[in-house]
Write a protein that binds this DNA or RNA. Structure first.
Lengths: 222, 222
DNA sequence: TGATTTTTATACTGTTCCGCATAATATAAA
DNA sequence: TTTATATTATGCGGAACAGTATAAAAATCA
């Protein structure tokens, strides 16, 4: 019979945001799930309830995958948590990176960054989801070195991104020469952390925006 | 026989820091535990592992109380968590209140406040314990209205204490008249939150102190 | 068609979990 | 002493838990 000649190899591990990509013909029974979508569901659950309070039954129900499939695709619960966290970081980075790099005035840029952060932290059907890095720092990071390293790297990435922002602003004369980009960056990160935490306690967006506005005034001048 | 005449009544509920107080003679079998000490042990566990990852067996072992005694003394796990949290708040308040009210120059006062905060967040045998308010905000506060209310009240208490600090400093001429005590207080709280979170991820004290120093410089002038 | 491969579906194992029922124990009061 | 009261000690019960073993199903390959 005429056979379709599946593409030779070329690594099936391509990272795809959409699931439209034509995978090379796989051998056995086809998967009933889409890994990226399932991982997103797992992330939703972990963000809502945290690691310990999320059971594999919950994850199985949310992803539509039965337990053995979960293990086959992502490993055990901890590995799934780690992959969920990496997915969160990738998503957050994608949502932020353009604004960080933008050539807008510093004040406008900060406003947009914090607005996107609030969108991320306040979204969620069953209550505001907060920042997964902060939640993970508060819980799993103490006892698990590998998770801790990822969290610290997350803090560092944010600090550096803000510092680059403030450096550029100072070069363009938007900030006084004496302004210290690293200190300002740590301040900006602390605002990110406080609104993430407070959002999680359901503080209304208006109040969080007031905190952001006051902080921006202090950082770049009223 | 000669009997000791226990003091009549006078409310057994007196809040005592030491356990030396002579309780009025109680009727049945005497307790084998000291409630305040047991509650402290429970708090230690909850701070280390969080609500979901702390089992009643763990609590029973740490307090030396068997399960029924735990229930009798503190109610179920959630009630014990709430009482532990209230205890944490009382302890933290006791450690801070004098410094907040002190008449020291604002810079010195802030330095002391943050130093005590770091002491609290970095203590712990099995890793830094962080801020229990922040941890609770990140986990239980979303779904539990009663716990959430306590957490929000905790944020508010800290904001107000800082605001009072900055108000007094402005009145004394330590800050420019245009300085906004509420905005500065939210900044100071955000520093508290960021060092609590970062401590939990085992960021070294030196780095946390650098964050504090930079923030103080921005808040009250370098 | 039949063999091979990969995934799904079901169900099991042994553990841990929370809350409570029951009985033993230690004190004060009568 | 006896009675009442308050706590401790033991352990049960049923549910939930994480992980896996086994078999059925659905595809490709020969």
């Amino acid at each position: 019979m005429v056979q379709k000649k599946g593409k030779p190899a070329a690594s099936a591990k391509s990272v795809l945001t959409t699931s439209e990509a034509a995978e090379p013909k796989r051998r056995g029974r086809p998967r009933a799930y889409q890994p990226e979508i399932a991982l997103g569901k797992a992330l939703d659950l972990f963000r809502r309830d945290g690691f310990a309070a999320t059971s594999l039954d919950d994850l199985s129900a949310a992803t539509g995958m039965n337990r053995p499939s979960l293990y086959g695709a992502f490993g055990d619960k901890r590995e799934l948590y780690i992959k969920s966290y990496q997915r969160y970081r990738a998503d957050a980075r994608a949502a932020m990176i353009d604004i960080f790099r933008d050539e807008l005035p510093i004040r406008k840029r900060l406003e947009r960054i914090f607005a996107v952060a609030l969108d991320i932290y306040l979204s969620g059907d069953a209550g505001p989801r907060g920042c997964f890095t902060v939640m993970t720092a508060a819980s799993e990071a103490v006892a698990d070195p590998e998770i801790r390293a990822m969290v610290l790297e997350g803090f560092s990435e944010l600090d550096k991104a803000f510092a680059a922002c403030f450096s550029m602003a100072r070069e363009k004369g938007e900030l006084p020469p004496a302004a210290d980009p690293v200190v300002l960056a740590q301040l900006a990160s602390s605002i990110i952390h406080t609104i993430a935490i407070r959002a999680r306690a359901r503080m209304p967006r208006k109040q969080l925006e007031a905190i952001v506005k006051g902080a921006i005034d202090v950082m770049v001048g009223a």
